[in-house]
């Protein structure tokens, strides 16, 4: 079985602001965080697609106690976003004051994607890009 969209290709594209995903040729489902098969039908016939990076927030949390190597980022907000193409992905929410975020003002909000790179440390194999989202008013 072939890995259609390996992490390295995803990471390289995300660093350039492009969110790559996969679309199932059999059932049409779109997969955001790539895997070897379709997240719905487990079919291996997938095409690489560029996702819009637009969607809405399903959940969020502001983290005040971070992992070793990430403390300097505190406090920061993690969001689960449902992209307009269907799949959920995880990223950060920027341009908002983390301590002031309230449930009814965040969940359901429209967002658009930009990119931020964690430079990596002694526990990672190089840098790691991730989506960061801003409110799309």
């Amino acid at each position: 079985m072939e890995y259609k969209l390996p992490w390295k290709d995803y990471n390289d594209a995300l660093k350039k602001g492009k969110l790559l995903g996969l679309k199932c040729k059999d059932c049409g489902t779109v997969v955001a965080n790539p895997k070897m098969v379709c997240r719905k039908c487990a079919g291996p016939n997938l095409d690489i697609v560029e996702l819009s990076g637009k969607g809405s927030i399903k959940s969020f949390t502001t983290i005040f106690v971070a992992a070793e190597g990430r403390q300097n980022e505190c406090p920061y907000t993690v969001v689960l976003v449902q992209l307009d193409e269907g799949p959920w992905t995880m990223g950060n929410l920027m341009d908002q004051e983390p301590a002031k975020l309230a449930l009814d003002k965040v969940i359901g909000k429209r967002v658009k994607m930009m990119t931020k790179v964690f430079p990596g440390d002694k526990y990672t194999a190089g840098d790691q890009a991730r989506p960061f989202f801003v409110f799309d008013n």
């Binding site: 965080n33 949390t61 983290i63 980022e73 920061y76 890009a129 991730r130």
Partner: peptide, 16 residues
């Protein structure tokens, strides 16, 4: 690869 880069912790998982 896809979730820790955002700074996810286990309290963070359950907070979400």
């Amino acid at each position: 690869h896809y979730e820790f880069p955002a700074g996810l912790t286990f309290p963070g998982v359950f907070a979400l």
